[in-house]
Amino acid sequence: MEEVSELLINKMWGRLNRQWVAMKARGSAGGIIVIWTENPFTMEANDIDRLIVGGDFNTIRYPEEKNVVGRVTTSMRRLSDFILGGELIDLLLEGARYTWTNNQENLILSWLDRILISTEWEEKFPRIFQRALPRPISDHNLLLLELSDFSAGPRPFKMDMSWCEDKGFDGKVKNWWEAMNVTGWKGFILGQKIKQLKLNIREWVKQENSSRELRKSEILLKLQELDRLEESNPLGNVERQQRADLKIEYEEYIRRDEISWRQKSRAIWLKEGDGNTKFFHRMANAR
């Protein structure tokens, strides 16, 4: 999203009682719009008993949180003061020692990203922790705050435009349709063939999703293996090229995911490729 205008905001939200601010996209990141009403609101003290603060703090807390150990800096002291002053808990990090890399030959690895929680969260969820997920595209690891599992359940059949990205999809649909042998009046034939076509597509999607998720998992595991290897020794040319190829392959899967979630969210005012799959996901589930 290169530019955000009043016209775009009006289409999204209307003209009355609202303010907005936007951050331009940079490549596959950013593209955030925040809109709020001008009506005043209040927050009671009990609304902030359980606090979670997470993100890229752009500094480490201790010297050993970097692969090149240095001295204690002012920014490190400020981060510790913020955590201690706010009575926050710096959660245990699972899955990696560092959350950021400069991806350069002179390798720098740092723990810049973290999730902080208030003591009330730890009292309610004593086994809460943060897990560093692989970084297939970004130079930062995603952080997962592990609490419980969630399942959205089955969804009704809808045509997903991401299926059309598969080069063989059109041919499969044609073959399935022509292979059906249904007799009766034309309306009945059409209805039965559409019903059967849905079943064929569902089965194909199930198999394709299973195969794709398996491949994505394989890529993430391999990238995680290379990241951990890099924490001990710089990667050679072969390993760096292998990681680059895996990232390109993974980016194609992510691009298809974004097309799918974009359609489900009906957020057609955003361009494909803004890197906001999670935004689309939340909007789709909220409907």
Rank of each mutant, 00 (worst) to 15 (best):
E120G: 01
Q130N: 01
L133I: 05
V173L: 09
S211T: 08
I108R: 12
D170N: 14
D160A: 07
E123N: 08
V182G: 01
N175C: 00
G153N: 05
E123P: 01
L199N: 01
R131K: 14
T119K: 09
P154C: 09
N200A: 11
E208F: 09
S162G: 06
I194R: 06
I108A: 05
R155T: 08
S110M: 03
W111P: 00
I115V: 13
W121H: 02
G184V: 14
E213S: 13
S162T: 10
W177S: 06
Q196Y: 13
N102Y: 07
L142T: 08
K174S: 02
W163Y: 05
K174W: 10
K206D: 12
W176H: 03
S210C: 12
L142Q: 05
N141Y: 10
S210Q: 14
L197K: 03
T183A: 11
R114Y: 03
A152L: 13
W204G: 01
P154Y: 07
K158I: 12
L109A: 03
L109G: 05
N106D: 07
E208T: 15
I117Q: 04
W177L: 06
K158H: 10
N103Q: 13
G171E: 15
R212W: 07
G191V: 03
K206W: 13
S110K: 10
M161V: 15
M180D: 00
L190H: 08
L107Q: 00
L116W: 05
L199H: 10
S162E: 09
I201Q: 01
E165Y: 12
F150T: 06
N103T: 07
L143R: 02
N181T: 06
E120L: 01
L190V: 13
E208W: 14
M161K: 09
R212Y: 10
S151T: 15
R135Q: 04
G191H: 09
L143S: 02
E120V: 02
R135H: 05
K216G: 11
V173N: 00
Q192H: 13
K158D: 06
D170P: 08
